[in-house]
Design a protein around this nucleic acid. Structure first.
Length: 251
DNA sequence: AAATCCACCAACCGCATTCCC
DNA sequence: TGGGAATGCGGTTGGTGGATT
């Protein structure tokens, strides 16, 4: 507090990253691994503050990041988790490993929030659970449609994506280690689905109620694993991101 | 064809928390 | 143990490109 922000130092560059800068950053991280961000601009000569380097890495250059439009299933996950957790984007992002918190936040602000508001107006309900339930049901319809007419998933659009791909092989090997440590926060449920520790005390309605009355009705009939079942077992049997991880990495 | 509007998203800002000396 | 520095996170802004007039 009271000190000048690190990015305000003279000579620190701002604005969009160039492919050259990306390459420098990626090369450095490939060699030293992510972390110790303060040393990154020092050792690479990048005219960026450590914060900016970290952000660039976590949001764009990190391998495994999925770009492009969100699937209806992803939307459903976000809507549900947002209703539960609020604007805890980092927490929500932890359930969608291929998406960054920034991505999710942007998508929420530009798409989902408006969608829910519209839905709220349509339904005339002020019960957030009921709204969410209706939204989720809409997403389910979307999922079902997608199953019939699957559209191709997002395409890599920028040069940074190509750079990120350079690292994918490297990440796969290093992921094993990080996955082991992060496993502390993740619990494997009996049916093989991933369940975050913090949700183990959280209970959810057995069914998503579409009306306020229904919300009250199911209030007494909540199930611990509903979220996981709904999120991960919706017929596709797939969860974006999780399912692409080798099984030996899922604890 | 030009001007304006609008949606999207990359990046920045500031506060909170964690780390380290 | 306290204080400064580093890191993490959420809110916000501004540039850009496509759509509309």
């Amino acid at each position: 507090m009271g000190r000048p922000p690190c990015c305000d130092k003279p000579g620190i560059k701002k604005g969009p990253w160039t492919p050259e800068e990306d390459l420098i950053l990626v090369s450095y991280i490939q060699e030293h691994g992510p972390g110790n961000w303060r040393s990154v601009p020092i050792n690479t000569g990048l005219l960026r503050c450590s914060k900016s380097c970290r952000l660039r890495w976590t949001n764009y250059l990190r391998p495994g990041i999925k770009r492009g439009s969100f699937t209806p299933h992803e939307e459903g996950i976000i809507i549900h988790l947002q209703a539960m957790l609020g604007n805890k984007w980092a927490a929500i992002a932890s359930y969608l490993p291929q998406r960054t918190d920034n991505d999710i936040k942007n998508y929420w602000n530009t798409h989902l929030k408006k969608k829910l508001i519209k839905l709220q107006e349509t339904l005339g309900s002020h019960n957030p659970l009921a709204i969410e339930a209706a939204a989720v049901n809409t997403e389910f319809t979307g999922v079902q449609l997608q199953q019939q007419h699957p559209f191709s998933s997002s395409t890599y659009a920028s040069s940074t994506d190509n750079i990120s791909r350079l690292l994918e092989g490297w990440m796969r090997s290093s992921e094993k280690n990080s996955m082991q440590s992060s496993a502390i926060d993740i619990k494997n449920s009996s049916d093989g689905l991933i369940c975050h520790e913090e949700f183990c005390d959280v209970k959810f309605p057995e069914m998503m109620p579409a009306t306020a009355e229904a919300v009250v009705e199911v209030e007494h009939n909540r199930s611990l694993t509903f979220l996981e079942k709904w999120l991960f077992d919706d017929g596709t049997g797939q969860v974006d991101g999780f399912m692409e991880l080798p099984s030996d990495q899922l604890i």
